[in-house]
Design a protein around this nucleic acid. Structure first.
Length: 302
RNA sequence: GGUGCCAUAGCUCAGUUGGUAGAGCAAUGGACUGAAAAUCCAUGUGUCCCUGGUUCAAAUCCAGGUGGCACCA
């Protein structure tokens, strides 16, 4: 059976370097599971792999979309599985790497078939919500889907909105689509987690943000500033600089905020990964151990 | 050297006429099914600078000390 090596961990820990070394070792290719490296207009702030790295090892799903494109996890699931299937014809193992937790999980476990919400419906429901408020939104959900109402986080407007959108579009309750079924994959999954001492990680993140600013992050943010309302730009490293460009804060404050939000993101990623018992954890400098472990596991597989 | 102000959570600071303390930020934990780098929830014990005094009771009042800042010599 073919194997997918999944390299995951918090932002800034060094997943890319390790993935590249693994790819070189196994003569493999890298599939990105990073929901912000999809966008070709963004490169500094999303830390896309350098062109040397991309020349050394083929990468997939890096800067293949525009910030103007609509893209979501489900489409990514389809695209990624199709590509994986195709690459396995020639290459084994393959490497999946990225910090977007939901995207990684979607490749590993799948996601339910839920219709994609039409933009008009979305706008309509959001307008209704803005006019009527959170409490009315809750009541509306209770009326159409009491089952979901009883389990959803009632403080989280995005969750409520989506369930209402689905109902408005299909006439069926959101729970009739949301089954939480785990899809079996026709390949083996080996999860390698990379983590390190929290203080060291935070220091690395802070330094990486400084390097991004030196490399021209502000100019990059300026170049997409006119489109700042796009969801693809609701992104750490850009939204803070938009505030600066608006004149709402100093550059120094914006940069500090990028560091802080990047640290929060790293923490959130670790929270997500912590509950996944299938991950075997390593430190970033344990590349040899990771290779040994992986080879061992791949052998067991045969 | 003198005078005044200040000393409370990792940081910036609140704290009423005395009843052993709480905000913001930082930090931490959690949730997560088509917006996910998104969105949402939760968590505050700290020699109240030190020593002594007054008091049933002191972060609070008094004295002395230490440190910081400002002004005057």
């Amino acid at each position: 059976m073919n194997s997918l090596i999944v390299v995951l961990g918090p932002t800034g820990v060094g997943k890319s370097d390790i993935s590249i070394q693994l790819a070189k070792h196994f003569h493999s290719e890298i599939i990105s599971a990073d929901s912000r490296q999809f966008f070709r207009e963004l490169s500094i702030g999303t830390a896309v792999p350098s062109s040397e790295d991309q020349n050394a090892v083929p990468h997939h799903f890096i800067q293949t979309k525009s910030i103007h494109d609509y893209y979501n996890v489900s489409e990514y699931e389809t695209d990624a599985l199709q590509l994986i299937d195709q690459l396995f014809q020639q290459i084994n193992p393959l490497i999946l790497t990225g910090g977007s937790m939901l995207y990684v999980d979607t490749v590993c476990k799948g996601i339910d078939d839920i219709p994609t919400v039409h933009q008009l419906v979305r706008d309509d429901v959001i307008n209704w919500y803005e006019k009527n408020g959170l409490d009315a939104l809750r009541q509306r959900l209770l009326a159409i889907d009491p089952e979901y109402y009883s389990i959803v986080d009632l403080n989280n407007p995005k969750r409520l909105l989506h369930a209402v959108e689905i109902h408005q579009m299909t006439g069926k309750p959101f729970t009739s689509f949301r089954k939480n079924t785990i899809k079996e994959r026709p390949f083996r999954i080996l999860k390698i987690g990379i983590n390190q001492d929290r203080k060291v990680l935070y220091e690395r993140i802070n330094q990486r943000v400084d390097r991004m600013v030196e490399a021209g992050l502000v100019a990059e943010a300026e170049s997409v500033y006119p489109h700042r309302k796009l969801n693809s730009l609701n992104t750490v490293g850009y939204k803070e600089l938009f505030s600066y460009l608006d004149g709402d804060c100093s550059l120094e404050e914006a940069v500090d905020l990028i560091k802080r939000n990047s640290r929060k993101y790293a923490r959130k990623q670790l929270t997500w990964f912590r509950r996944d018992q299938d991950i075997t954890w390593f430190e970033p400098d344990q590349i040899q151990e990771i290779i040994n472990y992986t080879e061992q596991k791949l052998k067991e597989n045969v």
